[in-house]
């Protein structure tokens, strides 16, 4: 069995700051990490490999530095790693990204047929959740999003049963492989990297593919050219005309501040006072 896991290197968003005066992003020194949601996908793939045997290939598209994300994945136990990188991919939106990744998976498939493709449910930088479905449609694979559990896998009959989170419940779905699965967060816990795998990761020759090696047939479907969406404006949100009324008292006593706050608020919002009184009763 051969599983391809798509991962992405993202800036650690918890550490991104906006410059208070210029309102621009301060990217300096923001560490790059593997998209946290992708680790659930990788772990799920590694568990299936432990159980059924086979290989796990990790795939990413990005700048040359994204190689570090692939090495991290190797250290957790992935077998192979492919970095798709080319200047023509710059500015790709989700439609263009899914085209490039689907092409690359097609190339990987030529070396060793792919049974399953795993992705995280979304990235923490784009937050779109669109690339997984896009790859599935392009490769004509069955799409299973928000999967919390792989119940069973029957390789001989090419059949997989999963639990999928849906609105208001869990759908149990049976489908055939090849299929593409986006894994829900919290479905598992990433294993620790072993010494042997860490050593292997440091020496592993990551396959670096440009657009030709990635099997891109039509470069106009990639990058800015291949992206239907364009970002027309980036801006900081407008502050409200009126800022918060800061509660101040003669003393800084929390009790006085609290009492003053309630008096002011309920004087202005008497309905809110009734509402809360009713509920708390």
């Amino acid at each position: 069995m051969h599983i391809v896991v798509c991962i992405k290197q993202v800036p650690d968003s918890a550490q991104i700051r906006v410059h208070p005066v210029t309102n621009t992003i301060m990217r300096q020194g923001v560490p790059a990490i593997v998209n946290p949601y992708d680790l659930f996908a990788l772990e799920e793939a590694l568990r299936l490999k432990d159980q059924y045997g086979g290989r796990v290939t990790v795939l990413t598209m990005g700048p040359p530095m994204a190689e570090a994300a692939l090495r991290k994945a190797i250290s957790y136990g992935a077998d192979d790693a492919v970095l798709v990188t080319d200047r023509v991919f710059a500015g790709s939106d989700t439609l263009a990204t899914s085209y490039a990744l689907a092409s690359a998976i097609g190339q990987i498939h030529k070396d060793m047929p792919v049974d399953l493709v795993f992705t995280g449910k979304q990235t923490i930088d784009g937050d779109t959740a669109q690339v997984g479905p896009g790859i599935a449609k392009r490769l004509d694979m069955q799409l299973l999003t928000y999967v919390s559990k792989v119940r069973s896998l029957d390789i001989d009959h090419k059949e997989i049963i999963v639990e999928r989170r849906s609105e208001g419940g869990v759908q149990v779905l049976k489908t055939s492989i090849p299929s593409l699965i986006t894994v829900l967060e919290g479905s598992n816990e990433m294993r620790f990297a072993t010494m042997a795998n860490m050593f292997r990761a440091s020496r592993y020759p990551v396959k670096v593919w440009n657009k030709e090696l990635a099997g891109i047939e039509d470069p106009t479907k990639t990058g800015l050219k291949g992206s239907p969406t364009v970002v027309s404006k980036v801006f900081a949100p407008t502050p409200r005309a009126v800022k918060a009324e800061i509660i101040q008292c003669e003393s800084d006593d929390p009790k006085d501040l609290s009492v003053t706050l309630l008096a002011k608020m309920f004087a202005k919002h008497p309905k809110l006072e009734k509402e809360i009184a009713k509920r708390a009763a």
Binding site: S13, V18, I25, P228, V231, S232, V234, F235
Partner: peptide, 15 residues
């Protein structure tokens, strides 16, 4: 929101 939610962006689908 964009950049991990630190700024907003406006996106258009032109052609």
């Amino acid at each position: 929101p964009t950049f991990g939610g630190s700024l907003l962006c406006t996106i258009q689908t032109l052609n």
